[in-house]
Structure formats: C-alpha cells, structure tokens
Amino acid sequence: MSDLLVPGKPSTPGSSSEGPELHLPAIVVDAGEQTARRFVEFFLVGIRNKNTRAAYTQAVRQFLEWCDERGLQFGSISSLAIAAYLERHPGSAPTINQHLAAIRSMFAWMVKGGILPANPAAEVKGPKHRVKIGKTPVLSDEEMRELLSAIDVSHVVGLRDRALIATMFFSFARISAVLAMKVEDYFPKGKRYWLRLIEKGGKYHEVPVHHKVEEFLDAYLEEGGLWDAKGTPLFRTTVATTRKLTENGLQRQEAWAMIKRRALLAGVNTDACNHTFRASGITNYLKNGGSRDNAQKIAAHQDVRTTALYDRRENNISLDEIERIRL
C-alpha cells in the first residue's frame, strides 16, 4: 500500500506499530480518521486497474500538495481552488484533463461515503482537446520487415523479442495485455492457434494467431522449453547476459528498452515504442483492404473513433499531395 500513498504524517487508520509505517498527505490526515480511511479506500477499493491507480495517485498527490502549501483544509477545497490549480498546471491538455478526472473521481468517492456534502470538482471544466490523428510513431511496412529480419534469432532472447514484436503487430494487442499472457494463453482451437488476452478495463478477448506469429511463437517456446510451463509468463526476462530465461515476466519498461535497442540496431525509426506495433498493424491492415469495424474488433477498442486514431493511411496521401507543388 505504501507505494500508493505519499509522504506526510503517519496516518494509516487502524494500523499497528508493527510492520512498515504508511503515510498519507498531511491535508488528509488533518481531516480526521474517517476521511483518511475513505481516502485509502478510494485507491485500493475504488480503482482496480493498476495503471489507472498509479496515474490517479500521482495526480491526486500533486493536487493535495498544492492545496496544503496554500493552507487549505480538505473539507474547504472549492471548485475555484480546483480551477486555479488547473490554470497553473504545466502539463498538456490531455494531462490536465487526466488530473481533473482523478480529482473529480476522488471527491465523488468522498461524497458517496458521506465525507463531503458535494463534489467541488463536478462543474469544473478542463481544457478542450480534440484529437483526430494519434501521435504514436508508426513503422512503415518496409521498416517492420527490416526490424524483424534484423533480430538475431540464433538464441532464445532473439526468438523472444521477434515473437513479442510480431504478436503486437499482427494482433493489435496492447503491450500490457501481451506481457500479461501466460504460456497457456497461446492455445489451439480447431486447426489454428489463438491468443487469450485481457485488454483494457479487464476485457476478455480472444484473437486468432497470424501464421507468422504462430511460427515465431512456436520457435520461441521450443527453444525456451516452455511448452509445458503452463501458468507461467509467456514472455520472460533473462538472467543478466546469460540468455537464460527466468520465471519472471517482462515488464513494460523492459519491453520499451528492448524495442529501442532493436530499432537502433535495425536502423529504423528510433521513436518506436511499445504502442508503435499496435498502430503499425492497424494501419497495415486498413491499407490492405481491412475495415475499421473489424479493426476495432481485433483491437478490442470500445469505440471505432479510437481505432481511427491508429489509422495513418492519410499520412502518405498528404505527402504525395505536397509533392505536387513544384517550382
């Protein structure tokens, strides 16, 4: 729990003197034990997704520190104070709106628990922000081929990296869903293999495996001796430079570092990141006649407008048109 909370006065309601001491923001502690307990429950009970929890923790911490520095009490935080905080926030429009969502959700939880009579953030508006094209770097088809072919697959690490990148590209899966897979989540159904994914919001999703991914995953599992390791991570870390797989799953930061290293070695766009292959795969699919509706289903997007953000076909069209301008 300590990684969710921020330094301040020792405060965990009902905690004993044994074990690690937990801390809450001073402004929450000063509001009393009932408020402090409800505040902790917001993060541990009200938010189940760990990524959302981490983002909201940071947002709420920064806001409450700002309030504390100005001598505000938790129960007296007003909509004007929240608006003033957002006005001076140095972040981008999406970041500010995320912070507002976190603050609004936290206060709504307090109202529901009877701690506050009303939500001071309910009517506060964030900056307008409309996105038609996503900012995620996309690799061209040629770059994708160069990246995959440049990976040394004479050892299990190369086989793992190739399989991981191909899985994201051909299944449009989020990095978190791919890294969360167990060996048993690559499974046969009929004559083909499928992937079992838990996507954003805990959405259960199954997608058939592209024949190239099947080839790459089979080679990785065979070399790593993982076929019978059911219930263990599919994509694993290694022991230092020994190229020996551990029983621990890769983390997103480790996958990001691997992708940066592979992109640099292959001489392709080094801005590539964990989400690049989701966007690149969707763009490739649509260029080859796929529909947005089906792309939405494969990617497990809630809204087709989200899928549209990953469609970069217009990038090439725009460049072709610009080249029509001649002197």
Rank of each mutant, 00 (worst) to 15 (best):
A263K: 02
P120L: 10
V28T: 09
W109G: 14
R174F: 05
D161F: 01
K212E: 15
I259W: 01
R38V: 13
N248S: 13
R61T: 14
I27L: 14
M106W: 13
T276M: 10
A36S: 15
L147F: 03
Y85I: 06
V40L: 13
R326I: 13
L309Y: 01
D303A: 07
F42K: 06
P94N: 07
T276V: 08
S176N: 12
R312Q: 11
G71A: 08
A272Y: 04
E199V: 08
I325D: 00
I133T: 13
R160V: 04
N284G: 02
N51K: 14
L197E: 02
A121C: 10
F39A: 13
D152Y: 08
A118W: 03
G126W: 05
P117M: 09
P120D: 09
F74M: 11
V124F: 04
V268P: 01
G190L: 08
L234W: 03
A300D: 00
E33W: 01
M144N: 05
R145L: 12
S280Q: 08
E247R: 12
P25A: 13
M110Y: 06
A279W: 01
R38M: 12
L72Q: 13
L217W: 00
D161M: 07
I259Q: 07
D320K: 15
N316G: 15
V6I: 11
L250A: 04
